[in-house]
Design a protein around this nucleic acid. Structure first.
Lengths: 338, 338
DNA sequence: GTCAGCACTCTAACGCCTCAAGTGCCAACT
DNA sequence: AGTTGGCACTTGAGGCGTTAGAGTGCTGAC
């Protein structure tokens, strides 16, 4: 069904109003503040039509209208004005990334923090890492008789450290030569390759099989563990929004938000879409009554990660989208310049 | 002022009842369920006396009594029965630590998780680390032209990794010899010594001053940064407790709990007390209406960290203390056996 | 298609009432 | 002196009717 321009305009007004005030929107309000050329009665009949089409609903017969999930979807895809960041906000983003040490996790943490602060919603972020990362260097760093720290550097400047056990009968010299061998074998390979190569390697380096197995295990764990690198910020921001005033809703939200696994599931899907907005029960991983807005950044063909915001349906999508775009731009600039 | 035995008994009953039911306790309740040998009128006059002494208060004239902060203090120090863990709980703790890789941070995370699960409160934990740790090994691990990862192994099996910048004109060979020199210089030293030694070292190793400075800076940062190693679990558990049903209180609590700095301040004080209970506004770092119960564990003379629980004043101290003791015992066993 | 006017519906707020819980106090008892 | 039953008093919670106000739907006129 096609909406007339006036219906679209009215729908946009309703969503905008509801987003800013969290109150049902009345025909009088619309006519007085946004459409002086028509009367409230006219607006009413339009609202009535929009309600029949499923875009609006009323809590009771004499309340104003509230947008439906359909309305939000239409809003973000067609109706919403593009927001613009103020200079102040831009410089706030810039300064958040000013002191960087090349540690990917730090970048992710800073991004999550600044996104949460600017949007006033809970933000989530996950550093991209996948099978296509190319290994640049591996180091096995012994630190107790039976333990070593495994370090893997990939082309994405991402360091991953994991503890592995050293076979008890292995001397330090043996370990060093195993280290050299591991490096020679895996350098330049994709992480995915390493995982698949496990069987082929087995024959070749029988004497260091134990070490090789552990390195491969560690890399597999890393690639498969999506929840490990999830970072959040502003978990308490959610309380600023009236839809979570009831303890039950709060609790539901917090239990999702404090579970890294659930978050990881939400973010895992579409790593190639630039900005994605998922609403309500659309996706089974996203709790009802929640919206998830995410952006996936990359510099050149290197993925930098997925960043986003989770909050009520009645979310300030304009603001969130513009903040995510702003952060993306600055992040990509930063990486490219470097 | 000295309390009669009966007053103590009544006060204990009031606190116990209030902890389990979150409802003001009436004289009738006490007389019927706990003290059949006296009438409710007698209990009433005792309650009245306790109220005048400041241990109890009423919300309004016709409500039962509620313990005051003083009452909680007395309760935990004198009145409270010692709790006992069930076999099931003990084995739950054991299995939480079953798979350990020697990574201190993992131990801390597991401890926080199991404490939160068993007590149903939000738990916080911080791995001990201080100036008395002895350096066993240092490694500077270059991974990009201008960046390196600094690894420090101490006697507490704690690995700390930090990124440092490499001076641009430094070759890989120079870096390696700097690495050897750093190791020779700092091995066996306490972290605190390294920090103080900075000036003395300056003269001696002028050529590698830049590297030395950065290592010393990194170690200083580590020793001074108490918030970095704070771990939490069960942040949403707080919602299970009725005192946080109001959004304002919730918000206050969550804003404290989501700030690592604030948590670190709370835990920083008394690293040498075995089990400490801090209540309400007693300590300015602890938010009003909150109790913090912490335990500091050590095996031999090696500190393992500080673990604790934060929750409402009306906290099940018995349970919390016994869980903390149980975790401590198992943790220390584990470390000693190893 | 628009609109003023009006009847209708529903909520929120208020006051009123009653009920039940719990206290404080007192006079009587041990 | 301590304990107790009895009783008056206070208070919050909940039910109920009323009212005011916001907002709608509808209708007949333009």
């Amino acid at each position: 069904m096609k909406l007339s321009d006036r219906k679209k305009k009215i729908l946009q007004i309703v969503v905008d109003e509801y987003i800013t005030n969290a109150q049902p929107v009345s025909s009088k309000n619309i006519a007085q503040n946004y459409m002086q050329d028509v009367s409230s009665a006219t607006v009413r009949s339009e609202l009535n039509a929009l309600e029949e089409m499923g875009y609006l609903s009323q809590l009771h017969t004499s309340s104003g209208r509230v947008p439906s999930i359909e309305a939000y979807k239409l809003y973000v895809s067609e109706l919403m004005d593009k927001g613009k960041l103020t200079g102040k906000e831009l410089s706030q983003i810039k300064s958040a990334f000013a002191r960087q040490s090349g540690n990917m996790e730090e970048v992710v943490r800073n991004a999550a923090k600044v996104i949460s602060e600017l949007t006033d919603y809970t933000s989530i972020a996950v550093a991209a890492h996948d099978e296509d990362d190319v290994i640049e260097k591996i180091s096995i760093f012994p630190f107790k008789e039976d333990r070593a720290l495994l370090l893997v550097v990939t082309d994405r400047a991402l360091i991953r450290d994991k503890f592995i056990a050293i076979p008890p009968d292995m001397t330090e010299e043996q370990l060093e030569s195993a280290n050299r061998l591991v490096n020679r074998t895996f350098k330049g390979k994709r992480l995915g390759e390493v995982m698949e190569a496990s069987l082929a390697a087995e024959e070749q380096f029988a004497s260091y099989k134990a070490i090789f197995d552990r390195v491969i295990d560690a890399i597999s764990d890393y690639v498969n563990d999506k929840s490990g690198s999830v970072v959040m910020a502003g978990e308490d921001k959610i309380l600023n929004h009236p839809e979570y005033a009831e303890v039950d809703k709060m609790k539901n939200f917090l239990s999702v938000v404090t579970s890294r696994d659930k978050i990881a599931n939400m973010l895992s899907d579409d790593n190639d879409i630039e900005i994605s907005i998922k609403i309500g029960g659309e996706d089974k991983n996203i709790p009802d009554d929640c919206s998830l807005v995410t952006a996936t950044y990359s510099a050149g063909n290197v993925k930098l990660g997925t960043y986003g915001v989770i909050g009520p349906l009645r979310m300030d999508y304009q603001k969130v989208v513009s903040v995510l775009e702003g952060v993306g731009k600055i992040l990509e600039d930063m990486v490219n310049k470097k």
